[in-house]
Design a protein around this nucleic acid. Structure first.
Lengths: 221, 221
DNA sequence: CATAGCACCCTTGTATACAATTCAGTCAAT
DNA sequence: ATTGACTGAATTGTATACAAGGGTGCTATG
């Protein structure tokens, strides 16, 4: 019972996103070809596509590696992400219908329950849904796609972040501000609230990364 | 005297950007392979890479086409572009050094001369330089790359826009506002001025596209 | 005459064979 | 002993052969 014809590209992407292939790992064509039970050709295609989206880095004649995002780049990516999500929130504030607002409130309620349960994995998931919903309400498909690809590039790192305990309630209250702004149709407020929310995440993230790299230096060096 | 080992990917990209391959055109593997004097393999690689960046659209088993950007998508892309360029401008306002300001003023002077000459091609070029410079001053490499790829996706269309006559002096005065804001270190003002500047461009652009498609309907249908 | 079904051909997708380049290891020379 | 160069192996890059799927055109039937 093999998996039903999933593209090599998706399979490889999944391995990166789920952390089976960690940043910096070399991606070998023949090894993957054997594992997936195909020839090198489709594997190469997949590698080139993922390299084009930034998930892999290719060095000519030297193979492909899972992209490593340094603190500098990470910070830059978060600044852009903050701006894009803020734009989503502003659009959502302008365009949300009654039923959109209802869904948003329901989603926020789910986030609240997750936070109360103290289950950070669950909150991570509900949080994703919350942001997804706002992107949808925003109604800008291109913007949505851009955010999705950027999200993917960060995902390999985000999974490290799950355990920041006291972050949940603050995140939740930031969500509340966003919800209120969208509900009130205040685009500027929604924009600002979302930008702050993402920026704070980015800062936390940088801190975590710094800590990890310090530990890793302590462990390896 | 053949060209000195330029990658198929760059060559194909160039053909799209310069308008040799118009949106909607089918991209045939064997034809291109013959033209470039290589086998299908590198051509396929190039196609997959360009498809990943959005310049081409692939339909399974049905080949690749130069991406067509409809009015809806175009508007969405411009909204994102406006936000990203505005972010650049805000960053530039915060980070610009004395010499950055000097370069910016010099660049703006070149734009002015180009506008006075009435040569829209020249103004187009100087305008590009102006925006490039602000992106550089912004200092966010990731942001710069994102804008570059987005720019590429629009370039095939932008070349149609060159002739909007009375646009030049208005564009120039908008540039002046941006320069002043950056010079004064006013990030918010730079942000707003740049966003407006790009948004207006986008609107003009949509008008043009609408006109063109109307004419094309009149001509073809 | 129009429509539906089938067959053939063209194009994409995959596999494999071959070429070229780079990295590493070893040997020799200073 | 250390460093440099050369050789070999391994991996990427390219070409070609083969398989599979879809589109078009023709034919047959209603």
């Amino acid at each position: 019972m093999k998996k039903v014809k999933v593209s090599v590209r998706d399979a490889l992407e999944d391995r990166i996103l789920t952390g089976q292939l960690l940043p910096g790992t070399r991606v070998d064509e023949v090894t993957l070809a054997e594992e997936f039970g195909v020839s090198r050709t489709p594997v190469r295609q997949a590698i080139f596509q993922l390299a084009a989206t930034g998930l892999l880095e290719q060095r000519p004649r030297r193979g492909a590696y899972v992209a490593e995002v340094g603190p500098q780049l990470l910070s830059e990516m978060f600044q852009v992400m903050a701006e894009l999500e803020a734009l989503c929130a502003a659009n959502a504030a302008r365009r949300a219908t009654e039923s959109d607002i209802e869904m948003l409130l329901a989603c926020h309620a789910d986030c609240t329950k997750a936070a109360e349960s103290g289950d950070s994995d669950r909150y991570y998931y509900e949080n994703e849904t919350f942001h997804e919903l706002i992107r949808t309400i925003s109604g800008n498909c291109f913007l949505r796609d851009e955010i999705d690809t950027l999200q993917k590039r960060l995902k390999a790192y985000r999974r490290l972040q799950l355990r920041a305990r006291n972050r949940m309630e603050r995140s939740l209250s930031e969500h509340a501000s966003i919800v209120e702004a969208i509900r009130g149709g205040d685009a500027a407020a929604a924009n600002a609230a979302m930008r702050d929310h993402i920026t704070i995440q980015g800062d936390r993230f940088s801190d975590l990364l710094a800590t990890l790299s310090r530990n890793s230096i302590a462990a390896n060096g």
